[in-house]
Computed example of a mutant assay.
Amino acid sequence: MHIPVSSGWLLVALCAATGAYCLLRMRSDVEEQRRAAGGEALMGFGMAAMAVPAAVFTPPGWAWPLYAAVFGAAGLRALWAARRSRHHLHHLVGAGAMVYMSLVMAAAPGHGPGHGGSGVPLLTGALLLYFAGYVLMAGVRLVPVPAPAGPSADATAGPEARATARASARASAGGWGDRPEVARACRLSMGIGMLAMLLAM
C-alpha cells in the first residue's frame, strides 16, 4: 500500500481508537451489541496494524499469511452470525477485504505497505464501490431524524431497531458502551479507513 507517512499515522490512530471503543462496547448489556463489537474491534486493530507506515516498520513475510488466516476465520464467524443479523454480512465483506489485502501484500516483492502490488483491479474496484456506498449510507444514518411516537412504532420495528432503542435508553443513563450514534460513527470511520487502504493499493 502506498500510503504517505503522515496519512498512515492518521489512519493508524483512527482505526486503533475505533477498535478501542469497540472493546468498550463488548461490555454492553445488549447481546447484539456485544456480538457485533468483537468483530469490529478485531477489524479496527487489524486495520491499524496494517496501516503502520513501512518507513517505521516492515512486517516480516509470515505476518501477511497470518493476517489472512485470522481474518479468514473472522469471515467464517461472520458468515455463521449472518443467520441472526444481516449486519454481519458487512463484517463478512470487511473480513474478505482484509484477507484480500493481506494476500496482495504477501505476494508483493517487498512484503510491506510501501511495496504493495495493485491486486486484481476488478476485485479492488468492486470493494471500493461497496465501501464507498457503505460510507455514504453510514453517513446518512448519522443524520438525526424525528422518531415516530406511540407504542405501535416499537411494535413494528425490527430486532436491530429495538436493540438500538434499548441501547439509547441505557446510554442516556451514562453507558458509553451502549451509545448507538457513536457505534455508527465508528463504523463510518472504519469504512473510510478501508476505502483509504484500498485506494492505496
Results as ranks from 00 to 15, higher is better:
1 M>N: 07
1 M>A: 11
5 V>M: 11
7 S>H: 12
10 L>C: 13
11 L>G: 04
12 V>K: 01
14 L>W: 06
20 A>V: 11
23 L>R: 10
26 M>K: 05
29 D>Y: 02
30 V>A: 01
31 E>T: 14
33 Q>P: 08
37 A>D: 02
38 G>N: 00
38 G>C: 04
39 G>H: 07
41 A>F: 00
44 G>M: 09
47 M>A: 14
49 A>R: 03
53 P>K: 00
53 P>F: 04
61 G>P: 01
62 W>F: 12
62 W>R: 09
65 P>A: 06
67 Y>W: 14
68 A>H: 04
68 A>E: 01
74 A>R: 01
76 L>K: 07
77 R>Y: 14
77 R>T: 14
79 L>M: 11
87 H>A: 15
91 H>C: 11
91 H>M: 13
92 L>F: 15
94 G>Y: 11
96 G>T: 06
96 G>M: 08
97 A>G: 08
101 M>P: 02
103 L>A: 02
103 L>T: 01
103 L>H: 03
109 P>T: 07
112 G>F: 08
116 G>P: 04
117 G>A: 03
121 P>R: 05
126 A>Y: 00
128 L>S: 02
130 Y>V: 11
134 Y>M: 13
135 V>Q: 04
138 A>W: 03
140 V>M: 14
142 L>Y: 11
143 V>C: 13
155 A>H: 12
157 A>C: 04
162 R>K: 10
163 A>C: 04
166 R>H: 14
166 R>G: 12
168 S>C: 13
169 A>P: 11
169 A>R: 15
171 A>K: 10
173 A>F: 07
175 G>D: 14
176 W>I: 08
176 W>Y: 12
177 G>E: 11
178 D>A: 15
179 R>C: 13
180 P>Y: 00
182 V>R: 00
183 A>K: 06
183 A>F: 10
184 R>V: 14
185 A>D: 02
188 L>K: 06
188 L>Q: 07
192 I>N: 09
192 I>A: 12
193 G>L: 06
194 M>C: 11
201 M>Q: 07
201 M>K: 07
